[in-house]
Amino acid sequence: MTHLLDRLSWFVSPLLLLLAWFVAARAGWFPPQLLVPPAEVWASFRDLLASGELREHVVNSLSRLAIGFSIGAVGGLLFGTAMALSKTVEAYCAPLFHTLRQVPSIALIPMFILFFGVEETFKVLIVTKAAFFPVALAASEGVKGIPRGYFEVASVYRLPLWSLLRDVAFPAAAPPIVTGLRISLSRAWMVLVAAELLAADSGLGQMIELSRQMLRIDIVMVGVVATGAIGFILDFAFRLLERRLLRWRPTP
């Protein structure tokens, strides 16, 4: 019973927000051109869903996210591990790495547009950058936190590099790495939508921006809600995966 109540509590804040939205629209506190009633947004959502337009934008955005996140996450995992295991790599790369990771990905969008244009390459690369640094930092800190005795035992058995990574480093550093992956996925999704707002011919961000220019605030709200819902689903799915992969950890 308690578990069911906890699950139902998830819906309290969204329902309160929906109620406040309905009351504000019904009372006319804001012009109807700015605050569209929930019923109109729902009608627009159904129309976009029936026409297939919303599905097309969502598929395009998620495809870019999947490609960019995969490249950035794998690259970050390998680079962060190398920086933790090799003092040479850390000495030469750490200063530049810690400098670049402080630069917001959104701030790089104009530069990326100049270099790569507004085609798919630009959007995939900005997602790759957003995913790379959190994963690399999490991998580096996680591997550094592994007790040295683990590596001493691996040295005694003369494990090759791949076996060292697969059997020692990655399993021991799994909790911070998985957390880094989850954080990087959320950041990559937000950066992608922002990039699509500025320069794209498809995707949720482009749908929101085009609708704003046409003063279709109902479709803008559909895009905003869809963006938030997809972000929540991605994060929730990753949390479930994290619990499954790390089920051996004792719960506090």
Rank of each mutant, 00 (worst) to 15 (best):
S186V: 04
R182P: 03
R187N: 11
A130S: 15
L16F: 15
M83C: 09
R148I: 07
S140P: 00
F132A: 04
P38H: 05
M207G: 04
G203T: 02
A154C: 08
E209K: 12
L198T: 05
V220G: 02
L4D: 11
W21K: 08
W21P: 12
Q102M: 12
S105D: 12
W162G: 00
A131L: 06
Y150E: 10
A237R: 03
R158D: 15
T2A: 13
P104N: 05
G142W: 07
L234R: 04
A66E: 05
R187I: 00
L8T: 01
V178E: 03
D167G: 11
L198G: 05
I208Q: 02
G68V: 00
V191C: 12
F122C: 07
F11V: 14
T121V: 13
W21G: 06
A138V: 07
S184M: 06
R158N: 15
L16C: 15
M207Y: 05
A237N: 07
S186F: 01
T227Q: 00
W248L: 01
V143P: 04
G142F: 04
F151H: 07
D235G: 00
D6L: 12
F116W: 13
E209C: 05
L204T: 00
S63K: 10
L48C: 04
L165D: 02
A188G: 07
A107D: 10
